[in-house]
Design a protein around this nucleic acid. Structure first.
Length: 293
DNA sequence: CACGTCACCTGCGTGC
DNA sequence: TGCACGCAGGTGACGT
């Protein structure tokens, strides 16, 4: 389809920012009709296939602790997936290449379904399903915690939180003196934005990624917050449109205005999109629309 | 405090 | 055809 148009890595990796993680949380939580899910189910076993997956426990301690607990809910905070069990909470961060899937442990013929390359953690549930964490680049991590706040308290506000008004956001921005893009991607400042959605949000408000955060007028801060919410919402909407239980090929990548589109004409003015480095990250702008002050 | 750099890791595309 | 190389994603540690 549009394969020739997208950056090469989009064909093989996920880029889990807030909308992708939200999409995964929903797909794990809401299995298709007539299929059981794993919510309310008890864990009957755990297999840790790569020790480094676990951020805070040994495989032995993890397995012993999670066995017998029931899964009560699956949610999201920032880019973390939050699995609430009866006594502990499991957090999973996919970083850049992680993936989660739910599948039956046994095939219809009665054979064990083999795990795949790069499957690093698998939880089996009482109803014959298992949750598998596939983690090719070994960047993703799982935590098992009595109190998830231990990790999640370091995160900034959720972009859609109601108390995050334009005024509050303006105070947050002008209370710092940092380059806009690295600040927006700082999870302690705001939780959920990554490289792609940040580029897209900045393009929508015509701000250069190197703009100083304390140079923004109140009105600009308000527009930036709206752009962030719009672009995240568009991402959620487009991923939500095409996923099912285990397959979740979103299609927001076909709607990028600047990300991965170096050399393409700006959709607003036709100037060719440029790629620059900001804080070591590939950054895409329209040099005409997004002028540096 | 802000910012730069590097390390982590694998697999894909590119260019020789 | 094979192969070395660059590069992408998110974050944390560390140096300036």
């Amino acid at each position: 389809m549009l394969a020739g148009r997208r950056p090469p890595f989009l064909n093989q990796a996920n880029m889990p920012e807030l909308p992708e993680v939200e999409t995964i949380a929903r797909s794990l939580r809401e299995p298709p009709e007539n299929d059981a899910g794993i919510i309310t189910m008890r864990v009957t076993g755990a297999k840790v296939l790569w020790e480094g997956t676990l951020a805070n426990l040994t495989p032995r301690a993890f397995t012993r602790r999670i066995k017998g607990q029931s899964l009560e809910d699956i949610g999201r905070r920032g880019k973390f997936l939050v699995f609430t069990f009866s006594t502990d909470t499991m957090l999973i961060h996919l970083r850049m290449s992680g993936d989660l899937r739910i599948e039956k442990v046994t095939s219809p013929e009665g054979d064990m379904v083999p795990l795949l390359k790069h499957d690093h953690l698998a939880l089996t549930f009482k109803n014959g399903l298992r949750l598998v964490f596939n983690n090719p680049r070994k960047f993703g991590r799982a935590w098992l915690l009595k109190d998830p706040r231990e990790v999640l308290d370091d995160l900034g506000p959720e972009p859609f939180d109601e108390p995050l008004t334009a005024e509050v956001f303006h105070q947050m921005l002008t209370g710092r003196s940092r380059q806009l893009k690295p600040l927006l991607m700082d999870q302690r400042f705001l939780a959920g934005l990554g490289n792609i959605y940040t580029d897209e949000a900045l393009f929508r408000v015509k701000l250069h990624p190197l703009t100083r955060s304390d140079d923004l007028a109140a009105e600009q801060s308000g527009m930036l917050l709206k752009a962030i919410r719009d672009v995240l919402w568009d991402g959620i909407r487009r991923n939500g449109a095409s996923i099912d239980w285990v397959y979740r090929g979103g299609e927001f990548q076909n709607h990028f205005n600047v990300y991965g589109r170096k050399g393409d004409p700006c959709p607003d003015c036709g100037t060719l999109i440029e790629r620059l480095l900001v804080g070591q990250r590939g950054t895409h702008i329209c040099p005409a629309c997004q002028k540096k002050k």
